[in-house]
């Protein structure tokens, strides 16, 4: 395992680009968490006035016009059920924190939509979900490395290696080789 944060780029880390509305789609669907709401709203307003649907996932009292709420409880199941009404030529635009983007991506591909139909906006923050390779617990909303695993309590080096299935980056105990080494905490990019 590396002693420091990897100095080379890791290719499993997704690339994000600015999203533009897909002009050919028959229907546009916007999905966002609270962090991505402003981004999502801007994109929603910019897209053609074809058939539109917008969902906010999370617990919020005030929503912009046109957004429907899905409570955060078992939102993935609820969203999955809602999707049955949409045709094969639908474009999806997802905004929010990185783990949320890929969780939605998972729900959509499971429903049969293709990756080219799913447009992920650049993440709305630097928080990551981190998969602990020792206890397999996923710690949400990590913004520094090293970070404490919420499952086993180990101090984890957060690497740039990303799993779309787990929607998380990998975390490995940072001082397993020499417990005396406790590197300074750094903000994640």
């Amino acid at each position: 395992m590396n002693d420091a944060v990897a100095s080379y780029t890791v290719k499993s880390r997704p690339d994000y680009h600015e999203v533009a509305p897909d002009q050919t789609a028959q229907c546009h669907v916007f999905i966002t968490d609270s962090a991505g709401l402003a981004q999502s709203e801007a994109l929603c307003q910019a897209s053609p006035v074809a058939k539109k649907q917008a969902w906010h996932i999370g617990d919020s009292d005030t929503l912009p016009a046109g957004y429907e709420a899905i409570q955060s409880g078992d939102w993935q199941a609820v969203l999955g059920e809602q999707l049955s009404g949409f045709g094969i030529a639908t474009a999806f635009y997802v905004s929010g924190l990185e783990a949320f983007l890929w969780q939605v991506h998972g729900v959509l591909t499971k429903a049969g939509f293709a990756p080219s139909q799913i447009h992920l906006e650049p993440p709305a923050g630097n928080q990551r979900d981190v998969f602990c390779t020792h206890c397999y617990h996923i710690t949400p909303d990590v913004s520094t490395t090293p970070a404490r695993c919420a499952g086993c309590g180990r101090l984890l080096l957060v690497r740039d290696h990303f799993s779309r299935l787990h929607c998380a980056y990998v975390g490995v105990q940072i001082n397993a080789e020499d417990p005396a080494e406790v590197p300074p905490t750094e903000e994640l990019s």
Binding site: V10, K11, S12, Y136, R159, H161, F162
Partner: peptide, 19 residues
């Protein structure tokens, strides 16, 4: 880790390999 790399594409699971 197979548990972490499960489901990855060829380039993804080789992601950490330098050069």
């Amino acid at each position: 880790s197979l548990a972490f790399d499960a489901g990855m594409s060829f380039k993804e699971w080789h992601g950490p390999v330098p050069l």
